[in-house]
């Protein structure tokens, strides 16, 4: 379930890496260091509009009280600051517990940026810092974010957080900082390397396998096949945002 469902893309990346490394080795000259070899490899093709990254969350498998996905997200993305007021802390992914007051049926599920096809945050951003990549991943460009928080008002999922303090403990691959708005990136730094998001990996490692990541456009991918077979829900489907994160079992 957690196997990468975009084998062709991964395979291509792998082959490209080997090829590039080969070129690098061939071009290597005395006095050159390894670090330059990595820099000499050809850049990746970038996000393709043929791909639509998405996630399917099976709430019947998601355990209440388990927060493996949240912990993995915090580790991967360096979300480690402590704020006096917990309401000021950043949460890229959170666990929500639902209870139907009539039937008493309970669900547990992770909630994060839903990576909408028509993201309200992108519509309202005055500077264009909120943006959607060709492959459907919604990101904040912190180079142009002015910290107005209008996107937080516009997001129906409360997926965005504002960084309330100076940060120094970032991971090199996940820049984030004070005064900018941020949210789940689908672990774009991993996805671009052909890996799956940290939360999905952690869910599998915890043997819940409630999260599935892949290309919704690739009919052969596990996620596309599951979405075609089972009844899935988009949260706030009434808004017609065509989200990238689907839920099963609610």
């Amino acid at each position: 379930m957690t196997e990468p469902n975009d084998k062709s893309r991964r395979g291509f990346l792998g082959a490209a890496a080997v090829g590039a490394a080969g070129l690098g080795v061939a071009a290597i000259a005395p006095g050159l260091h390894l670090i330059e070899v990595s820099q000499a490899s050809a850049p990746s093709q970038g996000a393709s509009s043929k791909v639509r990254w998405g996630m399917l969350i099976d709430t019947t498998k998601c355990a209440s009280g388990c927060d493996a996905c949240v912990k993995a997200c915090n580790t991967e993305n360096g979300i480690n600051e402590v704020l006096k007021d917990p309401r000021q802390a950043s949460q890229w992914i959170r666990k929500i517990d639902l209870k139907d007051p009539k039937s008493g049926i309970a669900h547990s599920l992770p909630m994060m940026c839903q990576h909408c096809e028509h993201p309200p945050c992108v519509d309202v951003c005055p500077t264009g810092a909120s943006m959607k990549r060709a492959d459907g991943i919604v990101l904040v460009d912190r180079h142009t974010c002015i910290g107005c928080r209008y996107c937080m008002l516009a997001c129906p999922y409360k997926a965005r957080s504002f960084v309330h303090m100076t940060l120094t403990e970032q991971n090199p691959e996940v820049p984030r900082g004070q005064g900018c708005v941020e949210s789940c990136t689908f672990c774009v730094q991993r996805v671009d390397k052909g890996q799956i998001p940290a939360c999905v990996e952690a869910c599998a490692n915890a043997e819940h396998n409630a999260m599935l990541f892949g290309d919704l456009n690739d009919l052969n991918s596990a996620i596309a096949q599951r979405v075609a077979q089972v009844k899935t829900t988009q949260v706030r489907a009434d808004l017609k945002l065509n989200v990238g994160v689907r839920y099963q079992g609610i």
């Binding site: 990595s38 850049p43 060709a134 460009d141």
Partner: peptide, 11 residues
Amino acid sequence: RSLRQGIRGEK
């Protein structure tokens, strides 16, 4: 290019 287009591994 890296952030908006996802082109990684440039020189």
